[in-house]
Structure formats: C-alpha cells, structure tokens
C-alpha cells in the first residue's frame, strides 16, 4: 500500500469541521477518484495528504512511514515525492513555460544555484521531456500566461512530472476547463498512470469522467466517506445520496 489515511480530522480555526474521521488506503498504480459536493472536504483531504494543511488529528502513512508530524527537511523530502496539480493551474504567470516546469525540481536543487537560475543540462533535458509527454514541447520559450487554460494545466502536469512523483494529487484539475479540453487533460493523467505507473488521486465533479478514468471511487459528504467502490456501481440512488435529492446527472464527453 502506497498511502494509508487513518481517522483523519481537520477543524479549521473558524470552527468548520472539514474532515470527520476519514480512513482509506491506496494501492500502488491505482487511479483513485474522490467525488462529492463543493465543501464536502475533498480539497482539504488532498492538502492534508501532502501537508499543505496540518490535520487536527489522525494519521497519514506514505510508503510505510508516518508523515503526519514530520517537519523541516524531512517533510520537504516527502513533498518532493508527491506531485500536485491544482484547479487554477497556479503557474508563475510572468515566467516562461520551461522555468515553470523546472520549478518542479526545486526540492532537489541547491538554494544558491536555483537563485541564480543556473540549471544543469540534465534538468533542461528532463523539463523538455516532461513537456513532450504532455504534448506541448514547442511552447517551452513562451510566457506561461500567454497559453490557453488547457495548455496551462498541461504545463502544471509537466511541472509535477519533474518531481518523478510516486503519488500524483490532482485537485479538480479540469473544473475551470471546457468539456473538450477537460477530456484531453484527463487523458494525460491516464497516460501518466498507465505508462509511468504513477499512483493518482484525483478530485472530480463529473460522474461521466469518473466512470471513464477511475479504477476506484470514494465519495465524501460533509467530511465523511459515504461510498467506496468501483465507479460502475454508482447507480441513480447512490448519485442522489452523494449529490442530494435535487441533483440530476449531466453528461460530459
């Protein structure tokens, strides 16, 4: 098992109880999708796994090691092994695509060299290869904010590939993209999962995408896991439980 989450709680300072005892495990090579309404705790859960947010109680075990309370250098070493892709891409807008991709390697580069932006031939080669993997090798020299939404998200995926991650977290990676672009971006996650064998945990909204890409599904509601299983078993009744009585399923292809 690559990741194990045990009885995880998160209470924010304003009193919101975002996670209420979440427990699950992820096997190597899985494509796990987490679904649920906005505010159900999906984003909090992902950020607790790579410690962008400190969980209030519970345990996160990554590669057999308890990482819930590690700090400093040790925490940074763990973070280098977990890639993350965000809904808003979170690129450095004014810098070139290639620089953005290289930032994925910062964790294993020296502070002084990275301040001078002196990178080795190998780093550049890896960055170009990562861009090839997501199909935008020719955009390397362009400014990040001149790219379209879908292209920016592919740069963000390339950035996470620079980490050679064991685990890739994706927080609603296609929620700000149009349907056609959504599918193409999801295909890159599938490719990374199948070809590189990287374990993927992905938050998604659309059930049609879930059915197409997920190998397993977890549904969160108000901070608790209410469903765990394979995507095909989510029928109409489960859908209503997860998304509420008034919800109607929409297709996205």
């Amino acid at each position: 098992m690559i990741l194990e989450v045990q009885n995880l709680h998160k209470i924010y300072k304003n009193g919101i109880h975002a996670l209420k005892g979440v427990s699950f495990g992820v096997n190597e090579g899985e494509f796990l999708v987490i679904i649920g309404l906005s505010g159900s705790g999906k984003s909090t859960l992902l950020r607790c796994i790579n410690r962008l947010i400190e969980p209030t109680s519970g345990k996160v075990i990554f590669l057999g090691k308890d990482i819930t309370h590690i700090k400093g250098e040790e925490l940074r070493k763990v973070k280098t092994q977990i890639g993350m892709v965000f809904q808003q891409f979170n690129l450095i807008r004014r810098r070139s695509v290639i620089t953005n991709v290289i930032t994925g390697r910062l964790g294993s580069l020296g502070t002084f060299d990275s301040l001078l932006e002196k990178f080795s031939e190998e780093v550049y080669n890896d960055a170009n290869k990562a861009l090839e993997t997501v199909g935008i090798g020719e955009k390397a020299k362009e400014r990040a904010d001149s790219l379209s939404g879908g292209q920016q998200q592919r740069v963000a995926i390339a950035r996470s590939l620079m980490q050679n991650p064991k685990l890739l977290l994706a927080d609603e990676p296609v929620a700000s993209l149009d349907p056609a672009t959504s599918n193409s971006v999801m295909q890159y996650f599938e490719k990374i999962n199948k070809e590189l064998g990287t374990t993927v945990i992905c938050n998604l909204h659309f059930l049609s995408l879930v059915r197409r890409y997920a190998s397993r599904v977890i549904a969160l509601k108000a901070g608790e896991i209410i469903y765990e299983g394979i995507p095909d078993e989510i029928d109409k009744n489960w859908f209503k439980t997860i998304y509420g009585e008034e919800a109607e399923e929409v297709e996205i292809r």
Partner: peptide, 26 residues
C-alpha cells in the same frame, strides 16, 4: 496570489526558493 506559493511549496522547495519563484515575480 497564494496559488503559486502553494504549488511551489508542494514541490518540496525551501522557503528561499518559494519566495524567489512564487513571490518575487508577482
């Protein structure tokens, strides 16, 4: 914007690198 700061710190970069890459350009 907090987004780039979050993204760069998620890669395991240290504090100085985060400031240089995610804060300074902004």
């Amino acid at each position: 914007e907090e987004g780039p700061v979050e993204a760069i710190s998620a890669t395991g970069a240290n504090k100085i690198q985060i400031v240089w890459y995610a804060v300074v350009p902004q």
